[in-house]
Design a protein around this nucleic acid. Structure first.
Length: 917
RNA sequence: GGCCAGAUGGCGGAAUUGGUAGACGCGCGGGACUCAAAAUCCCGUGGUAGCAAUACUGUGUGGGUUCGAUUCCCACUCUGGCCACCA
């Protein structure tokens, strides 16, 4: 048992005294910038998730240093934010003081883990010397015209009387009081991130992110291509004029002839303008109700559609038909134009709505006539499954290929007969039979169309609808079934096909029809090609205290005027009460002597903006500040930025992959366009870690009482036990439950490591040498691949090997200490010290391995008979096939099963021999 | 509802250009040391049968391809995560 308390302290002191982890600004070495998402210093202190990410990158950083890189592995605090502010409201303490205490705790805890952060570069987003530059960057957005003010609906808690962030709305209620939340319009500062949507998407090709991370970014940006179409409006309430157009976005302009009504989102500005007198009260009632619904309620796609007719009509620009305009909350104001053309024949939501309100459904696309699956019948997936039929193929356009074992076809004949009844077919069907594919035993496929009248198939196979044996019995029967039906209601959810009922588009494929329609719209001035993104502009205002003040001044004469750079930072003034005011303004608005100021431009009386920034602001650029944290002339020196950026490796949680990562990339691209940073992407490589769950498999949380405290673990088992355990616990990207027993196992391993010291001698068995080289190789490769768990496992194997052999050379043990060092730096240094090392292990170089020593000179070969393992033989590495086979045949248990000459022998060098008999 | 990821002993997990399933760790059982316990060390440990050699069986379910499938293909079930009426 080593004394972790002494050892931890001893080496942490030496690292600090020797400045072992200081990154050099001027260096001939290649640079490596290694970054973890800086923590939010919450009052609860460090939780078990932090060390997982930090240790992993610490392992990489320490390895890189030993490999000769100049490594920057910095740390700081993302300290603005709601929890601290809420705590301040509750206790009446200053957020500044609370933050200082929390960061002190975090710093102490992180230091106790022996992480190789460069503490001299510590930053804090709430430091005025830091947020001075956040404010400066905001003004850059403002000057570039990307920051603008707009009325936005915000979440408003009726009982707390405050605006809530989306994250604070839980199940449609206020997170704090569980009271009702509604939408309220409020003027907000916005930043036009959508201007960068396309670049944020295409530049993903230039970075090395995990595929799932890229995917989430793409989905969040949500690009779709289509057309914007203008519809003329006719209403008894408004004058018909060219200015009264209803603009919609659609990805399917080819279905324009099928648009039989229009829908506006309840918040749409045209609702008031076009609603007729007769419909007015009903529409107003509906809009008011919709407003009270939370996003969650509205977003529930399973609930029944609701809506109200406005009394107004639009003219379908293609067909010139007069179609009704409705208001319904299934249309969202935030996407596209907040209005849609409804094509009920080809959109499920529109269809559902049309069914309920008895609106016309006009099919304009049918299946491609050239495909033999062109019949239409009413079968759906659940019906097929109920019969226990296997679906072997499902097409995008609603067809199922099913498999029926031939000898069971009678069981399904009733089903098939029913589906073949005349009367199913309709004018769009060109074929009134089924399309079978028979698969014969020899693999040959035979296709046949079964006609209800001719019953060719019955003729040919006899048994199909009676019980006689077939002349030639096929193995399986495949049958194409279509999900959609024309009987009852007309409905086709055909994704793509051929246009019908569409005048000049008739006969064109969907892709051709789209193009032709867009051209037609453009030629006739009725619309244009358009691209839409799900991504919305960034709501940048918070009516809160604990954030960076937005550095703008409102002057009656000059409008919004930036605070001059010389007056930055605009420091957060101290207030007595941190609650937002009754009207939802920031607490800052009550400090009149701060709010009232003079206009920097005209000198007249003016008022400061009292909104603050979201805490995504400070975290959007923090990695730039690390390159030059104490600069007071610029956010960072250009040369230093050139040397250090981009970040070579960035790790964080999946929960930040959409917002933070996207905001940060956008922010960086903007700075790049303004010439402030040398690269257009901030992070060259992005990885993510999985959560550490509680022992019960649930999330660790204070309210569940299942939190494990890192201080206690470090106190009892030492920093290295926690570090190695968190690396060993499971695959780095997966969530894994905490298990204190597992940690004890790791501690035993470290004790065993310390016990290797007395085993040193001048020589060692070859098995130890080979184990060492295998271990160096595996650990080297596993660190690069983020497979920390198997790297630790390999080191355990090595230690077990040395223990059982009882001897190791001093040189070998020293090499082992070096590869252990990134994982367990205290133990590794202590061991090296005991072996006589004067320097810190961190100054040593990363060991190399000899490839020839990573393989043994004998191999164990599996001997199988018909694929079943019957014996194993140990043979020299380079044994010939003939010798190996001969040796295998000699095995009693093999000979027993082979009996005579095998039909075939499969030999995989160094792996196995399989006798086929 | 969509997308993504996953399903392997009592538990965390290992192994995939298809080639000895269960590495490593935990737990458990047995033994040594001890007056005793803890710690430590040694042996065993997927299931069934057998004293054993060994046989059969086994990677969510059903099928397929293959000499051979945890790995590839098809269908399904379940779990986790993210998004959610995106026109």
């Amino acid at each position: 048992m080593y004394d972790h308390k002494d050892i931890d302290k001893k080496w942490q002191k030496r690292w600090e005294d020797e400045g072992a982890f200081k990154a050099e600004d001027e260096s001939d070495k290649p640079k490596y910038y290694c970054l973890i998402e800086f923590p939010y210093p919450s009052g609860d202190g460090l939780h078990m998730g932090h060390p997982r990410s930090y240790t992993a990158l610490d392992v990489v950083a320490r390895k890189r240093r030993m490999e000769g890189y100049n490594v920057l592995y910095p740390i700081g605090w993302d300290a603005f934010g709601l929890p601290t502010e809420n705590y301040a409201i509750k206790t009446g303490r200053k957020p500044q003081d609370v933050t200082r205490e929390n960061t002190d705790t975090f710093r102490r805890q992180l230091k106790s883990l022996g992480l190789s952060f460069d503490w001299s570069r510590e930053i804090n987003t709430t430091d005025p010397q830091y947020y001075k530059w956040t404010q400066w960057m905001f003004l850059e957005f403002f000057r570039a015209g990307l920051a603008y003010k707009k009325k936005m609906p915000i979440n408003w808690c009726l009982s707390c009387k405050i605006g809530l962030a989306n994250e604070e709305v839980v199940d449609g209620t206020c997170e704090r009081c569980h009271g009702p939340v509604e939408k309220r319009d409020k003027e907000q500062w916005m930043i036009a991130i959508t201007k960068y949507a396309d670049r944020l998407l295409t530049d993903l090709d230039t970075v090395d992110y995990l595929p799932k991370i890229k995917k989430q970014q793409q989905d969040w940006i949500g690009k779709s291509e289509g057309a914007e179409v203008d519809f003329e409006i006719e209403s008894s309430n408004i004058q018909h004029s060219t200015s009264n157009k209803l603009k919609v976005f659609t990805t399917r302009p080819d279905t324009l002839f099928g648009a039989t009504y229009m829908v506006l989102a309840p918040e749409h500005e045209l609702v008031k303008k076009i609603t007729t007198e007769e419909q007015k009260s009903e529409v107003e009632k509906y809009v008011a109700t919709a407003r009270k619904k939370s996003d969650i309620e509205r977003g529930d796609a399973t609930k029944e559609k609701t809506g109200v007719f406005t009394g107004a009509y639009a003219i379908n620009p293609a067909s010139n038909e007069k179609i009704p305009i409705w208001v319904a909350d299934y249309v969202m104001m935030g996407y596209g134009t907040g209005a849609i053309m409804a094509v009920p024949a080809h959109d499920e939501r529109d269809f559902e709505f049309a069914k309920k309100f008895d609106l016309p459904v006009k099919p304009v696309v049918i299946k491609d006539q050239d495909q033999s699956r062109s019949f239409v019948m009413g079968v759906d997936e659940s019906e097929i499954k109920k019969l226990g039929i296997t679906i072997v193929e499902k097409t995008d356009d609603g067809f199922y290929k099913i498999l029926i074992p031939f000898d069971r076809i009678n069981a399904y004949k009733e089903f098939i007969r029913e589906k073949m009844q005349p009367g199913f077919w309709n004018e769009f069907s060109t074929s009134n039979g089924f399309y079978f594919v028979f698969k014969h035993k020899d693999g040959r496929l035979e296709e046949m169309e079964l006609n209800a009248e001719t019953n060719d198939l019955i003729d040919k196979y006899g048994i199909l609808f009676n019980d006689e044996a077939p002349r030639e019995k096929p193995e399986n029967v495949y049958l194409w079934l279509a999900k959609n039906s024309f009987y009852g209601e007309i409905l086709i959810h055909t994704e793509v096909g051929v246009a019908i009922n569409s005048d000049f588009l008739n006969g064109l494929s969907t892709a051709e029809a789209k193009d032709k329609m867009i051209t037609w719209l453009e030629e006739n001035g009725k619309g244009k090609r358009a691209i839409n993104y799900k991504l919305r502009d960034w709501v940048f205002s918070r009516q809160r205290y604990w954030g960076e003040p937005i550095p703008l001044i409102n002057c009656d004469n000059c409008g919004w005027v930036p605070v001059p750079v010389s007056d930055l930072p605009v420091v957060l003034p101290e207030v007595d009460k941190y609650e937002p005011t009754d009207d939802g303004e920031s607490p800052l608005s009550t400090i009149t002597d701060w709010v009232n100021t003079t206009c920097p431009k005209c000198g007249g009386p003016a008022r400061r903006e009292t909104d603050t920034m979201p805490n995504w602001a400070g975290s959007s650029w923090y990695f730039l500040r690390y390159t030059d944290p104490h600069n007071n002339k610029a956010f960072a020196d250009t040369d230093k930025l050139k040397y250090w950026t981009p970040v070579d490796l960035y790790n964080g949680g999946m929960e930040h992959v959409t917002l933070h990562l996207l905001y940060s990339r956008f922010w960086h691209k903007f700075l790049f366009d303004r010439g402030h940073v040398p690269t257009s992407e901030p992070y060259a490589r992005r990885h993510s870690h999985g959560l550490i769950l509680a022992e019960d498999g649930r999330k660790m949380s204070k309210s569940l009482g299942n939190v494990v405290n890192p201080d206690e673990i470090i106190g009892e088992f030492g920093a290295d036990s926690l570090r190695v355990y968190e690396m060993f616990i499971g695959p780095f990207e997966e969530p894994v439950p905490w298990n204190t027993n597992g940690l004890i196992g790791v501690r035993r391993f470290l004790d065993k490591v310390m016990k290797l010291v007395p085993l040193i001698g001048g020589s060692e068995p070859e098995s130890v040498t080979r184990a060492l080289h295998k271990t160096i190789k595996k650990v080297t490769e596993d660190i690069e691949g983020f497979r920390f768990n198997t790297a630790v496992s390999q080191m355990m194997i090595f230690v077990n090997e040395v223990n059982s052999d009882g001897q190791i050379s001093e040189k070998s043990l020293m090499e082992f200490a070096r590869i252990l060092c990134p994982f367990a730096p205290h133990v590794a240094n202590e061991m090296a010290f005991k072996l006589g090392a004067q320097d810190l292990l961190e100054t040593h170089s990363w060991p190399k391995y000899d490839e020839s020593l990573t393989v043994d000179d004998t191999v164990t070969i599996a001997v199988q008979v018909n694929g079943k393992l019957r014996a194993t033989i140990v043979v020299p590495l380079n044994i010939s096939q003939a010798d190996a086979v001969e040796s295998a045949m000699k095995q009693v248990n093999v000979a027993k099963f082979v009996e005579g000459e095998p039909k075939k022998v499969i030999y995989v060098k160094g792996k196995l021999i399989n006798f086929v008999v």
